[in-house]
Nucleic acid binder design. Structure first.
Length: 158
DNA sequence: GCCAACGTTGGC
DNA sequence: GCCAACGTTGGC
């Protein structure tokens, strides 16, 4: 029996990789995550088919830009082994990889970004620990509960 | 571009 | 194991 579908938030700077980029390529290895907590969520928590909210960070209108889904189990991020890569990690080896990723597949782009500004209006309902509204949180991959997922989707504008 | 908040590193 | 220094994130 397959485990129940889970939900996740994944942040990306649209200048580097946006929801439009994902729409164009269809599926993308989510490389470059170099934070242990985020890695653990991908490596230990994600299952193929899980729902993903694609968040645009560090841009004019930060917010959720669309939906995606987890399209692979976790496997080593090859950029950690590549000395020419910005994400190269000299302490990682193929025998003992340090960083993992999953493939992410495009589902749909929202007509309008669900802006962080709007999401903040519901910070209480989303809960204290929710990483988007928690003060100072920089986590780029984190779980979303079913209730949070529904609440956030309810903020989508036609 | 600024800067507060955070995670990681490394000397001790 | 502490903690200062450093680099990064990301909203504004």
């Amino acid at each position: 029996m397959s485990p129940r579908k889970r939900y996740w938030m994944m942040k990306s700077e649209p200048d580097a990789f946006s929801i439009d980029d994902l729409a164009r390529v269809g599926t993308e290895p989510w490389n470059g995550v170099r934070n242990y907590q985020a890695r653990n969520f991908m490596r230990d928590g994600m299952q193929v088919g899980d729902g993903v909210m694609f968040y645009h960070s560090n841009c004019k209108v930060p917010g959720i830009a669309g939906l995606a889904r987890v399209a692979s189990h976790a496997y080593p991020d090859s950029t950690q082994f590549d000395p020419k890569s910005h994400y190269f990690d000299p302490k990682a080896t193929p025998e003992a990889p340090r960083w993992f990723l999953v493939d992410v597949a495009f589902e749909r782009k929202f007509k309008q970004v669900i802006a962080l500004e709007d999401i903040r209006q519901h910070a209480d309902a989303l809960g204290e620990g929710f990483a988007l509204t928690a003060r100072g949180s920089r986590l780029s991959v984190f779980p979303v509960t079913t209730a949070q997922w529904k609440l956030l989707l309810g903020l989508e504008k036609p």
